[in-house]
Structures are given as C-alpha cells and as structure tokens.
Amino acid sequence: MVKGIVLAFLAFAVFAWGDAIVKAIGHGLDPFEVTFFGYLFPLLLSPAFMKPGDRILDMVRWNRPWLMGLRIFLIGSTTPLSVIAFRNLPFAEAFALLFLMPSLATILSIFILKEQVRWRRGLAVCAAFLGVLVIVRPGFREFQVGHLAALTAALFAAGGVIAGRMIGRTEKRFTLIGTVFLATTAIAGVLMIPGFAWPSAEQWILLLAFAATAFVAQALFIVATIYAPADRLGATQYSQILWALAIGALFFDEWPDALALMGIAIVVGAGLFIFAREQTLKREMPEDAAPAGMVEPSPAACPRP
C-alpha cells in the first residue's frame, strides 16, 4: 500500500510539472495545438498500457457506446480548456478552480444518478463554491477567460466522472485509458486547424517534454494501482496544489495573496472531505457498483483515468 501511495504522489508531481510546461509555452502556440502534440505521442505509445488479451481496436470497441462517447468527449475537452486556464491565470489559482470538480460531480450525481447527498457533503459543496468566490472575488477583480475555461473544465470533468460511474465495469482498462488519449488528440486536432502555426525549435522541446510527462505520469499511476487500489489513491492528486504554489512562486513569480490562499485552502479542503465521504459510501456499496481499477480524472492539463 505504501509503495503505491508513494508512486501516486510521484505521478501527480510529474503531472504538475507537465502543467507547468504548458504554462511555460505561454501564448506562443494555439492551446489546441499544444494539446494535440502533447497527446499525440502518448497516444502512439498507449499500447504500453495493454494487458494480455487487449487489442488496439479496443480503443473504439465499446460495450456502451453512447456513454463512452459522452465520457471521452467530456474528458477529452478538459485538456484544451485547462491549457487555456493555465495560460491565463496564476498557476495555483487555476488548479484550485479545477479542483472544484468533486463538488460539481456531487451536484450532478443528485440530478443524474438520483443519489442522496447528506448534509455533510452538502456543506462541503457549499464551502467549495464559497472558496471559489474568495479566489475569483467577482466585482473586485476582472473575470477572465481563464476563469471561465477552468470552471468549464471542472464541469466537463465532473460530467466525465458521472459517465464513468454509469459505465461501471463494462469496459476494459485499456479502453478507458486509450480512448482518453485518442479523443483528446482528435478533438484538439480538429480545433487547432484555424490557429495552427509551426512550432519553433524551443517550442518543440517544450511540447515533447509535455508529452513525456503525460505518458510517464500515467505509467507511474498505473504501476501505483498494482500496489494499492486506485480509488484509495485519489486523494494524492491534491498534492498538485502544493506543487502549483511552489512552481508558481519560484518559476513564474506568482505569489498568491492571503485571500487567494484562503480560497485555495477552502476548495481543496472541501474536495478532500468529499473524497473521504465517498470512500465511506463506497465501502457500503455492492462491489460491482463502481469501475474497477480506476480513479476518475481531475481536470488538469492531463486527464487521469
């Protein structure tokens, strides 16, 4: 168990550095182009995640096609939206808004899955939205396109969570992983056409580094699930906010003020509480009620199956 947790922390550290590379690319390239090249190479290497009996065609061979199609569209769309957020907002602030996803998933579960949300989780959801208001401070700060992109990415990722719960155990793990790479590459490839510009040598290096982090981090997380159940590792993704604070301060000269730090703490604390409550509920559910070997993605520049 401990080895799995350590590997998961390492995986999310690599994810955070990948997001930092996206921010370093800045406005020099179209965000959809960044996403396309960042996920094209992991897509080509995705057979490394295959298990005995898996086939390449499993990427597009789905048992529940409508739900899978919805899930990959939602999750695939989170990456370019996250890229826009990271390019336009302070690093830690973008992460905090993206981590609104668990609260949004809780709300969606009420209306779509007809789940009963008790008062503790309800208060955590309210606290998360309060934290967002503290961060954004509408009326006192300009509401930027990055804020809209981050909040939309969180909503799309939450929708992907709900679709994943509805899919359950009907799809192979390679299908769930490979389709994310495939969908993200395909969606970004179409949307990058109007703003396409050939990358410079320096931009190619950054794009390859981003692609490497997407693949290496995913591989580390898959190995982590060998030593610990995937749903027990979900809380480790919140370590990214610590990386975001450190990277933003040291490399981008971004120093959040006291109110921003308070809002970040509220959003992250609420998300962790919701995660803990859902783990308690899962232990009370039938074993076949949740996807096997899988943690739903947090919406950052790299979707995580």
Rank of each mutant, 00 (worst) to 15 (best):
L250S: 10
P199H: 02
G53S: 09
Q237S: 13
A157K: 07
V6Y: 15
P194I: 00
C302W: 15
D257A: 00
G195F: 13
A105W: 11
P291C: 00
G271A: 03
L207N: 02
L259R: 12
A197T: 06
F215T: 10
R283P: 12
L45S: 08
I167N: 10
S82V: 00
Q203I: 10
A212G: 09
R64D: 10
V134G: 07
A186T: 05
I21E: 15
P286E: 13
L113N: 03
H147P: 13
V267F: 07
D257P: 15
G178C: 13
E254G: 04
I205V: 15
T225G: 07
S77R: 06
V14Y: 10
R71N: 09
P303H: 04
R121Y: 10
F9E: 10
F221A: 03
F129W: 05
A186S: 10
I84Q: 01
G38T: 02
W243K: 11
Q203V: 00
A235D: 12
A11E: 01
L45N: 03
F73I: 10
T78F: 12
A258L: 15
V117I: 01
S200W: 14
L130D: 14
G164S: 14
P65Y: 08
L40E: 06
T185S: 01
V216W: 07
L130V: 07
F275C: 10
F73S: 04
R137K: 00
G159F: 03
